[in-house]
Amino acid sequence: MTIVPSSLDKRGQILRELAFTTRRVGEELHGSAEITPEMHVPGTTILRTSILATWADTVSGLLASLVMGPRVPVTLELDVNLYRPAPGEGTVLVVGRVVKVGRSVFVAEFEFTVDDEPIAVGAASFMVAPNPDVQLPPTLSVELPPTTDRLPMPLAERANCERVGPGTVLLPYSIEGLNASDTINGGLIALAAEEAVLSLAPGDSLSFLGLRYLLGARVGPVIAEARLREGVGRVELRDTGNDNRVTTLATARTFGR
């Protein structure tokens, strides 16, 4: 789950620099942000699909917190499907809606537009964090205010997410990359998965990114290893500091540029 804490909390600082804001509109939660060059896929002027996944996780997770709070919702699955490569400039708007509130699982859907042009859709599911001692901040609001924080460099560089070989990426543990349950933020996990696939397809971008979160990455670094065949990628992410356990399985499809 990608919930951005207060500005006094260094957790989530990296993703706070995406300058994403949210507001309630009836039963929906709307989020928006301006695209900057630091959000582009390397070597292109295309917005990263992993950033869309991060914003989708934020909106869906905040909706889940209204139901599951004060317990922390954790993301089970999330997918983003793009109609075409995302633009490299403009204002992104995401609209999140509740689909299901069950006893153990919460589901939300979302739609993305850029300057009123539809670009992507998707859905996410959540469960309550197993540890009852992990709780949301009492001051948490689902309306994230504007911030002056901005990415000072490309996102992968800011997160020290490093391509160490074809199909292999290393993402370190950093307090600035943690979420509300003190695990590596799901948005940065999405970034590592995207980077692993794109290292095998330079200059391309992802038309689909699906993530199955199996275990929180509590120690790090996380290693992401991808295979790509006929434009379809499969990524396995492991927490090397926690007995190399699998934390996330990701599936991706490239546009084949």
Rank of each mutant, 00 (worst) to 15 (best):
205 S>E: 06
231 G>R: 03
32 S>Y: 15
104 S>W: 14
8 L>N: 13
147 T>D: 07
62 L>K: 12
35 I>R: 06
231 G>F: 02
141 S>N: 06
176 E>T: 11
20 F>G: 11
83 Y>C: 07
170 L>Q: 05
92 V>T: 09
23 R>N: 09
91 T>E: 02
31 G>D: 03
52 L>H: 11
83 Y>R: 07
51 I>M: 04
235 V>K: 00
51 I>H: 01
184 I>P: 04
135 Q>R: 11
8 L>F: 14
186 G>A: 14
111 E>G: 15
4 V>N: 09
163 R>D: 04
88 G>C: 08
222 V>L: 04
245 R>M: 08
18 L>A: 10
67 V>H: 06
204 D>L: 08
47 L>Y: 10
191 L>T: 01
242 N>Y: 14
28 E>W: 08
135 Q>C: 12
107 V>K: 15
183 T>E: 08
84 R>A: 13
53 A>D: 03
202 P>Y: 06
105 V>S: 11
142 V>H: 02
201 A>E: 02
21 T>K: 06
257 R>E: 09
7 S>W: 08
131 N>V: 09
109 E>A: 04
91 T>M: 03
214 L>Q: 05
174 S>D: 08
45 T>Y: 14
87 P>H: 14
112 F>W: 03
53 A>T: 09
201 A>Q: 04
198 L>F: 08
71 R>C: 01
217 A>E: 03
136 L>H: 08
239 D>V: 02
90 G>A: 10
137 P>Y: 11
117 E>V: 12
194 E>N: 03
170 L>S: 05
252 A>G: 13
216 G>S: 03
122 G>E: 01
81 N>Q: 06
8 L>S: 12
109 E>R: 01
96 G>K: 05
136 L>G: 07
226 A>W: 00
38 E>G: 01
208 F>P: 07
211 L>V: 06
179 N>I: 04
222 V>P: 00
197 V>R: 00
129 A>N: 07
115 D>W: 05
256 G>H: 11
171 L>F: 01
145 P>R: 06
99 V>N: 01
236 E>I: 10
30 H>E: 08
152 P>F: 14
246 V>F: 12
158 R>Y: 02
2 T>K: 02
102 G>D: 00
209 L>P: 02
232 V>D: 00
121 V>R: 12
11 R>D: 01
121 V>L: 13
48 R>L: 04
33 A>E: 11
153 M>C: 10
209 L>A: 02
93 L>K: 13
10 K>Q: 15
103 R>Q: 07
68 M>W: 07
247 T>M: 08
77 E>T: 10
120 A>P: 04
250 A>T: 02
59 V>M: 14
248 T>A: 00
61 G>M: 10
87 P>G: 08
1 M>G: 15
6 S>L: 06
7 S>D: 09
133 D>M: 11
194 E>A: 01
187 G>K: 07
253 R>D: 14
